[in-house]
Design a protein around this nucleic acid. Structure first.
Lengths: 241, 241
DNA sequence: AGGTCGGCTTGATAATTGTCAATCAAGGGC
DNA sequence: GCCCTTGATTGACAATTATCAAGCCGACCT
């Protein structure tokens, strides 16, 4: 894995989308540069553990390329909490609170990650009201995301979770009838709170509701029929809410 | 239910702990007064629905007395997400994001609630960096709380959840061997993601691990034995982390 | 092409959790 | 005191979900 420390100009030239992230868009140029000066850009192969739950939060991480999976383990069991795709920051909460990570993170694909020292983030956070407000927005969004995930886990059974997941995915792909699962099935199973075996059986059961599956390929034969089973609600399934 | 609109002086005289909330402790006096001027204090009997999921967030709520339960429903099922005890604010995320509530709230006991118009909160939030920072801290804490709850749901079975809940409760009561459940069992069951019947059976099973239960009374015969079953971890069970 | 590996699928079975119905117990109102 | 309501408990049973053990299949390697 190659490690490069890069100055502000290099990072923002190569990845202007970092500056455009909601988190950084409004902050003062001087503060943004201060953050980027201390930042590193690293490239990781797949399956590398970036952070481990329980460790102190040394860096705010931003995925600029690839894919990262947030996961948690206890007593020999492991589950996927979330997958993060470019361009997005993760573990913002641990960073601003200066508290240990509650989740681990690993690369799923070869990934490029920007690492910003947590102390720098906290300094700018204290000095730049615009940044503080952006962090609030980010955190509130994340909070609402986890709340939705929890509601789904507690209120729906595994087939309903799967059906709604597929409908959300369809919406994300612009309503296409056919699309591919963005992650491996075993990871999807862990995310949805079930075993890979049950995911297989679930996809099989959905055939009765017009869903075809071959490998990563999903075909929604009748969104109408699937919706009848899934009963999606904006208060769980609307990602923009 | 009686409704009273109160000026800043009355509210802060009667409930100085509001000013002492982490959320308000650091903000400018003028801003605090502006918030309190528009605030209402209401007293509600038990079982009143204060907010309904999906509604726009008109008010930030603060429980100053009593107890409030946050819950969510879907497709005829209902679950408890959290219970809020004085003095604490709830639905901060929906308020600052100006987004619909994701959870409903109802009083469990007769409760006194301070209601602050969301627009006022957003105004002060934009004008007072100290308040913005406090909101960040609050939100980060809440976020981490939901993450822990989700980890518990996905990684532990119902007996393990119950055992760990009892251990957390014991810690909250200063390590006492005997204590009372703070909420009704059916609510506890919903919070822990199980049915009341299963909670009953769970408490029964825990007798084999030294736990006695009569009504709301819990006696932990051997914290050691219970811990052996529960295997608590700070990354889920430490409420101060 | 053959071989190997990892992930996916399938069937059989077991464990966990939920449902339904009945009963019990405690607290409030009359 | 005595009903009446509500929540808690119990047992029998059903549904859901997990586990275990093959087997399958496609990607990748040599």
């Amino acid at each position: 894995m190659s490690i490069k420390g890069l100055g502000a100009d290099v990072l923002s030239r190569d990845f202007p989308e970092i500056r455009e992230l909601p988190l950084f868009r409004e902050i003062e140029e001087a503060h943004f540069e201060a953050l980027m000066r201390g930042a590193y850009l690293q490239t990781f192969p797949p399956q590398v553990e970036l952070i481990r739950e329980g460790d102190p939060s040394d860096f705010l991480h931003i995925v600029v390329e690839g894919m990262v999976e947030m996961f948690a383990a206890w007593n020999g069991r492991e589950t996927v909490m979330e997958t993060v795709s470019p361009v997005a920051a993760f573990i913002v909460a641990a960073t601003v609170r200066d508290a240990p990570y509650l989740m681990s993170a690993r690369t799923v694909l070869r990934s490029r990650i920007v690492l910003i020292p947590s102390q720098d983030v906290r300094n700018v956070f204290a000095a730049d009201p615009a940044f503080a407000r952006a962090v609030v927005t980010e955190l509130a969004e994340r909070y609402r995301g986890v709340v939705k995930h929890t509601k789904e886990l507690k209120l729906r059974n595994s087939l309903e979770r799967l059906a709604n997941y597929l409908l959300r995915l369809q919406t994300l792909t612009g309503g296409a009838e056919e699309f591919d699962l963005p992650i491996e099935k075993r990871r999807l199973a862990a995310y949805l709170g079930m075993t890979p075996e049950n995911l297989s059986r679930g996809l099989r059961s959905l055939e009765a509701h017009g869903v075809t599956n071959d490998g990563a390929r999903i075909v929604i034969g009748s969104a109408e029929a699937l919706r009848k089973l899934a009963r999606p609600t904006p208060l769980i399934d609307d990602t923009s809410l």
